[in-house]
Design a protein around this nucleic acid. Structure first.
Lengths: 123, 123
DNA sequence: GGACTGTCTTGACATCCGTCAAAGCAGAGA
DNA sequence: TCTCTGCTTTGACGGATGTCAAGACAGTCC
């Protein structure tokens, strides 16, 4: 049985178009899983999920770190650590020294596309 | 006495309707984040992401453990461990002693709804 | 009933993760 | 330039996670 390496060995997560068919439509190849799993993992922490939401829902998809930090009972370094995790997962982008963080909706779109399930066929 | 901890006793993720507005539309409250983050976390491992895809894309959304195990270079107990993680996250359901696992598309729908982003406004 | 097959559970271990305290570093203002 | 403010990085620690080996358990077939 051939390994059947899909033509998307390296996934360009910066692209604006969904990269992959829904998870329930076609079996996710190992390479795709290896690339997308970290993004899900980054959203797998309640603090980061809230951070992501605060950034993405902010005006222009941008937020100031100074507005994010006081929203949690956590120290500054911890928030910075979580923001770094979101950054390394490609979910947010930072400018300058990180005072402003910007959401990258393209990644969210790809994750959403992967999770898309058709409406229940018969119930 | 089997432990069989009931998954997700807090919020009924079994509902078929999306529970939450998109992450980028409204800031996710802490309670919602605490409930949904584990589901993302469960998908945050490449093996589990592939397992989820194999189950959800199988005929009828059901798969046999005997078909899942040989697809990875991992031992049986490890696959069982990952399936348990998916089960506790409410992403899959198991019958009998777990020979058959069934996907729970409602949860995927909710996660997808949370990640939904409107198409780029101007480019 | 007895043995076999296949899955789950337990125990152990190395690694990763979330958190904080302390130190480093980049802008802003005087 | 100097200082002040605020974010990041580093180091450390407790807890969670991924993995495997060994044992336990439920169906199945004889």
């Amino acid at each position: 049985m051939p390994k059947q390496v899909a033509p998307l060995a390296i996934i360009d997560l910066t692209a604006d178009a969904p990269c992959c068919p829904p998870l329930a439509k076609r079996r996710v190849p190992a390479e795709t899983a290896a690339v997308l799993a970290p993004a899900f993992k980054a959203l797998g922490d309640p603090v980061r999920l809230q951070l992501m939401s605060m950034i993405a829902s902010a005006e222009g998809g941008e937020a100031c770190v100074c507005d994010l930090t006081p929203a949690f009972d956590l120290t500054g370094p911890t928030i910075s650590h979580h923001l770094k995790a979101l950054r390394e997962a490609g979910l947010v982008d930072a400018e300058r020294r990180g005072t402003w963080v910007r959401a990258r909706p393209a990644i969210l779109r790809q994750l959403a596309a992967l999770l898309t399930v058709e409406p229940t066929p018969a119930g």
